[in-house]
Computed example of a mutant assay.
Amino acid sequence: MFNFDEIVDRTKTPCEKWNKYKGADVIPAWVADMDFKSPPCVIEALQRRVAEGVFGYTDIDEETYGAILSFLKRHYNWEIQKEWLVFTHGVVSSMNVACLSVEGESVMTTTPIYPHFIKAPMHANKEVIAIAMKEENNRWTLDFEAMEEKINPTCKLFMLCNPYNPAGTVFTCKELEQLGAFCLKHDLTICSDEIHADLLLNQSTKHIPIASLSEALAKRSITLMAPSKTFNIAGLQASFAVIPDVELRKRFKKTMGSMVGGINLLGITALKAAYLGGDAWLGELRTYLAENLALVQAFVNRNPKLKLLDQEATFLAWIDATALHVKSPYEFFLQHGVGLSDGGPFGNAQYVRLNFGTQRTVLKAILERMQKAVDSL
Score class of each variant (00 low, 15 high):
375 D>R: 15
350 Q>S: 07
168 G>F: 08
25 D>N: 10
116 H>V: 04
13 T>K: 10
151 I>L: 10
114 Y>P: 12
84 W>P: 00
134 K>F: 12
299 F>V: 03
327 K>W: 07
129 I>S: 14
59 D>E: 11
80 I>E: 14
70 S>D: 11
372 K>T: 07
273 A>F: 12
56 G>I: 00
126 K>F: 01
286 R>S: 08
236 L>S: 05
17 K>Y: 14
119 K>G: 04
78 W>M: 11
111 T>L: 08
219 K>W: 06
177 E>T: 08
121 P>I: 09
108 M>C: 11
210 I>C: 13
276 L>Y: 12
331 E>A: 09
230 T>N: 12
240 F>T: 09
140 W>N: 06
85 L>W: 08
48 R>Q: 15
188 L>N: 14
208 I>T: 04
123 H>K: 15
195 I>A: 15
45 A>Y: 02
81 Q>K: 03
15 C>Y: 14
278 G>M: 02
139 R>D: 02
363 L>I: 01
52 E>N: 11
175 E>W: 08
349 A>Y: 11
120 A>F: 07
205 T>F: 02
321 A>Y: 04
353 R>A: 08
1 M>W: 12
194 E>W: 08
287 T>K: 12
71 F>I: 03
286 R>F: 11
245 D>S: 15
176 L>N: 07
111 T>R: 04
333 F>C: 03
337 G>S: 00
167 A>L: 06
14 P>S: 01
345 P>Y: 02
373 A>K: 13
338 V>E: 03
259 M>F: 13
189 T>Y: 07
339 G>K: 07
253 K>G: 05
365 A>K: 09
328 S>C: 00
296 V>T: 02
224 L>S: 01
292 N>F: 14
69 L>M: 11
42 V>P: 08
81 Q>H: 03
98 A>T: 08
38 S>W: 06
368 E>F: 05
98 A>H: 08
330 Y>K: 01
109 T>V: 06
150 K>V: 03
281 W>G: 06
316 L>M: 15
291 E>V: 01
151 I>A: 12
343 G>W: 09
81 Q>M: 00
137 N>H: 15
67 A>M: 07
25 D>S: 12
108 M>G: 14
54 V>N: 07
98 A>R: 00
9 D>W: 10
75 H>L: 03
213 L>G: 10
108 M>H: 06
269 T>R: 12
331 E>M: 02
114 Y>A: 13
274 A>F: 13
360 R>Q: 15
26 V>D: 03
284 E>S: 13
